[in-house]
Design a protein around this nucleic acid. Structure first.
Lengths: 183, 183
DNA sequence: ACCTGAACACCGTTCAAGT
DNA sequence: ACCTGAACACCGTTCAAGT
């Protein structure tokens, strides 16, 4: 058993039953091992979730827009890719967002958007603000969607979400970034 | 003991020691009551946290920009007010954001921003998208800040945050909203 | 080095019973 | 109606002991 196998199994549980059921006991059982054995590969659950967050992003789509595309289309594609990656697992947005905030994972999300945004020619500080602002929206929207889906399953809410809703919100933020780029 | 007293005590615990230590046992102890007694006033912990989220927003500042101010300044003030409210309690941003996503509280955040944004003359659907986009940023930024503070206390990260960082990111989003309003 | 087995110190929630 | 007391079914983490 190595770190990769633990992360793979954790992702399987996350995709099937979600974060509340991703317990060290269940993880140990599916690995055919005592839960305490996991602590020989990860210091604690949070460090494990950091590795899970990294793997969620790595497994997501990596759209190549081509060199002909402008920075705006590249940033849009990067945001859609990050969104697709975290939506592929139950509570994936929550896990990646939390681990990124804690500095324990999800760095790839920042790097991908940052790289795409480099062509905009913004000042370094403004570029950093723009990347984090975009990520707040991408993660926030995905968390809200996955939470609403969960709430609907419990019966607390009606689900019904507009599939174009994300693109519309992203368009608003990107319009603001574009305004800063031309100024 | 009534719901108001339970929420007040819960807010005290939240402000002093944060969400992980806001347990039903501790809440019962500080109320001078068995933990099970709380279930006579709230169906479960989540419903209680929904009421806590509402109270967090109610206790925050309610800046009056005056009638002379344009919708942009009013929206900016509403966002700063919501931010100040959730930052006043440890993990306040996380609680309010989660409860809002679950439909169990925090409705006032939406209503305040929505009311301020009404003067922009956006189409109803666009206005809704803009309000939720702004809230994703406001909540996301505050959660990241409170998480970073917590991580810094544990020693996982260096804290050092620019006090103008929020205003800069909000400015980007508002520029996008303004562009949609003039179009 | 890697894992077992057992324990420690907790959780949220339920429910019969009291007043 | 409101609360007690006790239990149920769990958690993450630690650690001596085995191989």
């Amino acid at each position: 058993m190595d770190r990769r196998e633990v992360v793979d199994t954790a992702l399987g549980i996350l995709g099937r039953v979600g974060l509340p059921d991703l317990t060290m006991r269940r993880l140990g059982t599916e690995l055919g091992v005592q839960q305490s054995a996991i602590y020989h590969h990860f210091a604690n659950k949070q460090e494990l979730l950091g590795a899970v967050a990294d793997e969620i992003l790595a497994r997501g789509p990596h759209t190549d827009t081509g060199d002909a595309a402008g920075w705006l289309d590249q940033v849009r594609a990067a945001c859609h890719d990050v969104r697709a990656a975290v939506l592929a697992f139950s509570d994936g947005a929550d896990v990646v967002s939390s681990m990124f905030a804690f500095g324990l994972g999800g760095r790839e999300a920042y790097d991908r958007v940052d790289k795409a945004l480099a062509g905009a020619g913004l000042a370094a500080e403004t570029e950093d603000v723009a990347v984090r602002t975009l990520l707040h929206f991408v993660f926030g929207h995905a968390i809200a969607q996955q939470t609403a889906e969960q709430a609907a399953r419990v019966g607390a809410i009606d689900a019904s979400s507009d599939p174009d809703d994300f693109a519309a919100g992203l368009g608003l933020v990107l319009a603001g970034v574009a305004a800063a780029a031309t100024a």
